[in-house]
Structures are given as C-alpha cells and as structure tokens.
Computed example of a mutant assay.
Amino acid sequence: MNWLQEVYQTNKPIIAMCHLNALPGDPYFEKSGGMEKVIEDARKDMLALQAGGVDAIMFSNEFSLPYLTKVKTETVASMARIIGQLMSELKVPFGVNVLWDPTASLDLAVATGAKFVREIFTGVYASDFGLWDTNCGEVIRHQRAIGAENVRLLFNIVPEAAKYVSDRELTQIAKTTVFNCKPDALCVSGITAGQETSLSLLRLVKEVVPDTVVFANTGLKAENVKSQLAVADGGVVGTAFKYDGKFENHVDPDRVIAFMEQVHSARSNLTTV
C-alpha cells in the first residue's frame, strides 16, 4: 500500500469532495450565473477544504442530476475549465470523478494532471438511471492508450442507487474484482451520498482482500470517523463537510476543521496501538 503515501503523503488519507454546481447541458444549470458562478462556488469550497487540512480533493459533477452513464462533451469541457482556473490555488493532490463515465474520468484526469479517479468500473446493475452496464477491459485499455497508467483507479463496488442484476455477495465481488481487474483501491459505500458505510461490510471486504486499499466511500462523520478508520485505509468525504451536514449545501470551514481534528486523533491512536 505504498502508493497511499506516494500520492497522499499520509496513511489513512481523507479525500474531500468538491461538488461542482450543475454544469452547462445539465437540467439544473443556472444560466443567470453561468460558468462564472460555478467556478466561484467551486473556488470557495476548494479553499475551505484545503484550509481545513484535508489530504486530497476530488472534483465531481455531483449536481449533474439525473446522471448519465455516458456523459456529454460539454460536461468534461466544463470540468476541465473549472479545474484549470483553480489549479494555481490548488495545494493538495487531486482526483476527478465524472459521474458515471469512467472513460471520461480518465480523459479529464490526463487533461488536468489528476492523480486518481473514482468510478464504477465493473458490473451490470439495475439502477435509477436504467440498465447500467460497464466494460472494464475497454476502460483499462483506454487508460493505457491515453498515457494514464499512473492515474490511480478507485473502484466503487457498491454503486449508489443501483443493485447487481444477479445476487452476489460483496465479498465475492471484492475478491473477483481484485483478481480480474487489479484496482488500486476498492470503495465501499452506503446506498446514497451521505449514508454511512456499514462497518461490518468494510470489515468483511478488508478481510477478503487484505493487500488491497479499502476506502469508506460515504457517510463518514466526525462522530464515526475513528471507528471507520480503524478498519478502512482512508475515506471519501462530501456531505459531512457541508453546512448543517446537508448534501445540497456548500462547504462549512468549521465542520472541516472539526472533522480533521478527529482524523488526526484517530491516526495518532492507531499509530500508538
């Protein structure tokens, strides 16, 4: 697991989500404010996350609801512009997540210099977005073809708002995904953004793939982060950093600071045990 130190400069890293407002082409894009409003809101959130001490930031088109599984060109172009304009102020490692299109995520990573992507790379699902199919072999070949082989791949193996079309235990999914696809990390999630990741599921996944990085992908809070990091190798955090802990709000700097204080305490305790 040396790559965690290489990318994030710490063990048990916290990856903070920078949720972008709806973008051009999205149903809820605010045309009155335009891209300038999207960029300014992203800047405020990014700076608040950095000042609060997070280990990395992941830019995501979180408010491109309802999501596509093959995104439009304007989405990737908009995200590239946003990250490009914020680059000079970005001081921590960053990743990207173009929901829900792994090929587009890799394209954006190469264009911007992102260190990692998180996506649904494997599986076939019945989802809120229709029948959701993937082709990991094609995506990994594309990764190599565009020179993105050093971009770390975070595989979300519990897609939000979706279920495998056939019943498979999560431990079986974890084992076969690691064997067949060689992910850099597995992300274990709750049912939606902000919903706590089951500690028992995290433990089961970590037990069956002990040599693979396992992240708690949703629902981390200041109140549970110590117990979650005792099992997980790190976490992805979005909702907990927002005003009143609500998904639709922007980042609350005080919540970031309070959360990261608990993270530093958890790391210290784990080091001394």
Rank of each mutant, 00 (worst) to 15 (best):
T103C: 11
V117L: 08
L108A: 01
I83R: 10
G130Q: 03
P93E: 02
F129V: 07
P66W: 05
F63Q: 05
G113K: 03
G84M: 08
E119K: 10
G137W: 12
K91Y: 15
T69M: 08
N135M: 08
W132Y: 14
K70R: 13
N135L: 07
W132I: 06
V92A: 08
N61R: 03
T122Y: 08
K115H: 13
P102A: 07
L68V: 06
R118S: 14
W132R: 05
C136A: 13
V117M: 08
V96F: 09
F116E: 15
F63M: 02
T73N: 03
V92E: 11
Y125W: 01
F116I: 15
L108R: 00
G95K: 01
S127C: 15
W100Y: 14
A80V: 13
V92Q: 11
W100H: 12
V98S: 06
L99S: 00
W132E: 05
E89D: 14
D107Q: 06
E119A: 15
E74C: 13
G113R: 02
A104Q: 02
K115S: 13
V76E: 06
F121S: 09
G123A: 00
S105P: 05
K91W: 14
E62L: 12
C136Y: 02
A77C: 08
I83V: 15
P66H: 00
L90H: 11
